[in-house]
Amino acid sequence: MSFINYLSREINCKLVYYGPGLCGKTTNLQFIYNKTAPEAKGKMISLATEQERTLFFDFLPISLGEIRGFRTRFHLYTVPGQVFYDASRKLILKGVDGVIFVADSQIERMEANIESMENLRTNLAEQGYSLDKIPFVIQYNKRDLPSAAPIEELRQALNANNVPEYEAVAAKGDGVFDTLKAITKLVLTELKKGSGQQ
């Protein structure tokens, strides 16, 4: 649920990075944080365990520039990927404007990807959203690993709706900003469309 502030002339949107445990959601945010100019970002917050696994969420506010005199600000969140944190994942999806699914390309994580995708669909539905309608992109991460599955196989398993998809090596930053740009574009386009319909 975006927040339009006519007084401070700001459009605020919420993006959520979803995906199985250790797929690279936090790594995406860390790269964005490191490469964003100080004046365009806030503090990155990670609520993580001592082993640096996300416990509740990571949060990074960034600003992307102006549209028609309105500053566009995006709040980036990650969910905890581990299966047993499902209650927390549901909470973070509240009020989401766009979702990035980060898939782990390694062949041995295929099932975890599929399970997480189904979990995303279910949890979105609980909040009254449909994965088929909400702005949504997929990132195939860890493309540099030797056990990475072919893109075609990942696509078949995860991208039945043919949403925008990007290959990435988040640890090096490859594909990270392409993915972010794609989802912000979809979210802004949806906002524009949504307001026109009402």
Partner: peptide, 20 residues
């Protein structure tokens, strides 16, 4: 009420592209 969000309807695809 119906006449809200005028700024959003004015946004063009080009505006969005220009951001990037």
């Amino acid at each position: 009420s119906p006449d809200r969000n005028d700024v959003l309807t004015e946004i063009t695809d080009a505006d969005i592209d220009n951001l990037f």
